[in-house]
Design a protein around this nucleic acid. Sequence first.
DNA 1: CGCCACTTTGAATTAGCTCAAATTCCGTGG
DNA 2: CCACGGAATTTGAGCTAATTCAAAGTGGCG
Lengths: 262, 262
Amino acid sequence: MHVPHQVASPCNDAPSFREASPLETREAAERQKQRDGISETMSLLAESLAPGKRIVHAGDVIYRSGESFDSLCVMNSGLVKIVSLTQDGREQVVGLKFRGDWLGFDGIAHNAYACDAVAMDTGEVWTISYEALLKASTEQPRLLQALHRAMSGEITRDRESLTSVCTLPADARVADFLHYWAESLGKRGLRTDQITLRMTRAEIGNYLGMTLESVSRALSKLAREKIIAFVEKGRRDVRIPDLAGLAAFVERSLAPQAVTLQ
Amino acid sequence: MHVPHQVASPCNDAPSFREASPLETREAAERQKQRDGISETMSLLAESLAPGKRIVHAGDVIYRSGESFDSLCVMNSGLVKIVSLTQDGREQVVGLKFRGDWLGFDGIAHNAYACDAVAMDTGEVWTISYEALLKASTEQPRLLQALHRAMSGEITRDRESLTSVCTLPADARVADFLHYWAESLGKRGLRTDQITLRMTRAEIGNYLGMTLESVSRALSKLAREKIIAFVEKGRRDVRIPDLAGLAAFVERSLAPQAVTLQ
DNA sequence: CGCCACTTTGAATTAGCTCAAATTCCGTGG
DNA sequence: CCACGGAATTTGAGCTAATTCAAAGTGGCG
């Protein structure tokens, strides 16, 4: 149960050194599993459907609300935000998508997309005809399984968003957001100790239901408490020495009454 | 384009009398379509799958988080709340389900339900084996279509919830909630001018991300402004003379700056 | 009838918002 | 290479919407 130490790199982007707890190794194993699952699904899609591949850059619109639906997308790399626009003009970021995530489920019900999908970074998006997917899935049930799991997972994730917004104070929401983002990277085999926020404070605030100033203050507070740190020059790179620290911060904000009453 | 007036009933539960606007008739037509769609799907399920039928009463747990997943449910009647419980003990109502709605999608991804489903009223719930559904759908593609549309619709609805919580002040959130509930009834062929809240103020507040006191104050304000009315004796029955009034209240709360400036 | 859970309303408090100003960063062009 | 300008961010100060705390009111049900 001993994880070998890594060699320190000279610059300040080395992971923090600590013994791995049993919990952490279990979590790491879970991430490994997730990662394998994503790669497996990507291979399956690539082989069974020969999806169209498209490179997108920050700002590119992948699909727009109202466009007629005929295909789903799966992200091979990059980062995408899903934005919903209400009739009365409110704009809401309702989701973030990473490698392996599917886009466009909202289009199935009414044959038209209900949201915009906008790239926030360079990446590759695969396009999969919904018709073709259904057709192929009769001979390859794993395709259907992958589709259903992805939809199911999206429903669960959306509920987590709602729970965060409804039950956490602003500071904790930001901490929870960073935790979610880092975990998302971890599940995809990427480092969890540093993330590059490709969203402005305003976008983060919109996603979390608070103002950009509150996001900024929350980040400053987390940095002050050494739960995160900003990489020198630029406030888009966030260093997270210990993921559990973020989770602990969230918990702490839920039970501030627990003074040492003994 | 003339809708016949109805006879006034002696008690105070008569619908308000107004000419139907083109918008309203379009909305009514939309509701009719929705209603037909729901009934059609229910028939399809009944014929193709002979689902298990179960009567539930208020408080009954239909499934619980953690239970192993093997079947979905479809509501034939009644009202169900979906409750998510986080690891750190936060409880969040993440959805409400009416006739025609499916339950249990969250179970597909990990073969275990991620939420509790609790009946809030007497009703009938149909149980559909997920395996059997997939099997039957190879010969009856409309089953798969119904499943996918239901999942897609749930994703869209969840995003609407998030948008409401993130972008509306408390009062408007309650108004929006009532509007959603009445619309949901309308889509199922029920009257939209009166709803019986089968949730306490605390449950509503939980769902909308606010305290029970704020819910109460918001309802009082809506009643004061005659946008809703409480049916005499008991504050669970809410009369909605005009659905558009609720929508207008929401809009108003978004643009309070629009004074009569030319 | 009386209990208990739910609801309403008021008063005081506060978390988060708005408004404002200063600072940093980054791309562009001289 | 450096100066400049605009966009994003940070931070402070005051304000306000919503919460917390408290008390009274209401209704359902054994």
